Computed example of a mutant assay.
Amino acid sequence: MPGKRRLSRPLQSFVEELALCVAINGDVGPSLLWPDAAATLPALRRIPRPQELGPGSAAAPGGPGAAALTSALSDRLGLSVTPRFRALAPGSAWTYDVSGSAERTVTVLEGACRCDLLSGSPVGRTPPPAPHHPLGMRLRSGSTLFTPRHGACRLSEVHTPTVLLELVLEDRVRQ
């Protein structure tokens, strides 16, 4: 299409892998993606970040730097994709839940954090019995967590400044 910016090969690979992950796990549960291409993380890190994303716990819209990535993912999934960058300071935490028609991916661009998956179940499924302890793992640079609708996640144990690329995936509004 005229006027559309082409993605680099590593970012196009990321879009394809992420789209497959969402398609397979959307009705099943959360999943963790490690991109296949070694050049993917450096390419994601080169996406310009908003100036208002400063130290500490903050969130900022994705801006034009993430437009080509989100446009390609939106076209591939048939969903509206909204990018946000988030900075977590050492000692901070962030909890999110995915409600309504939204799904979410969080990619760790720099740093690391603990991730605890909290109770929730995909639409139309019977929720599993709540475990005594949430399922937890460590997310490191390069990993992407996909959380389907009605899931929840808590990111904590941030020991070094951590930068996340968050993509909110929502059904397109019909006009």
Results as ranks from 00 to 15, higher is better:
residue 52 E to K: 03
residue 71 S to P: 13
residue 32 L to V: 10
residue 65 G to H: 06
residue 55 P to A: 15
residue 25 N to S: 09
residue 35 P to F: 08
residue 79 L to K: 15
residue 36 D to G: 05
residue 73 L to C: 12
residue 67 A to P: 09
residue 29 G to C: 03
residue 73 L to N: 10
residue 73 L to Y: 11
residue 43 A to G: 05
residue 55 P to W: 15
residue 72 A to E: 01
residue 79 L to C: 15
residue 44 L to C: 01
residue 67 A to Q: 07
residue 81 V to Q: 07
residue 49 R to D: 07
residue 36 D to K: 10
residue 47 I to P: 03
residue 78 G to T: 08
residue 71 S to N: 14
residue 56 G to T: 11
residue 49 R to W: 05
residue 45 R to H: 02
residue 59 A to M: 15
residue 62 G to V: 06
residue 47 I to S: 03
residue 80 S to Y: 13
residue 69 L to G: 04
residue 39 A to Q: 12
residue 65 G to D: 05
residue 42 P to C: 06
residue 51 Q to E: 15
residue 73 L to P: 11
residue 67 A to V: 01
residue 31 S to P: 06
residue 57 S to M: 10
residue 61 P to I: 04
residue 75 D to E: 14
residue 72 A to I: 00
residue 26 G to S: 13
residue 76 R to T: 10
residue 41 L to S: 03
residue 43 A to H: 03
residue 33 L to S: 13
residue 73 L to Q: 12
residue 68 A to N: 08
residue 78 G to I: 08
residue 24 I to W: 00
residue 34 W to P: 00
residue 45 R to Q: 09
residue 75 D to M: 10
residue 61 P to W: 07
residue 78 G to E: 04
residue 44 L to N: 01
residue 28 V to Q: 07
residue 77 L to M: 06
residue 33 L to D: 13
residue 35 P to N: 15
residue 25 N to D: 07
residue 49 R to L: 10
residue 35 P to Q: 15
residue 34 W to T: 11
residue 78 G to A: 04
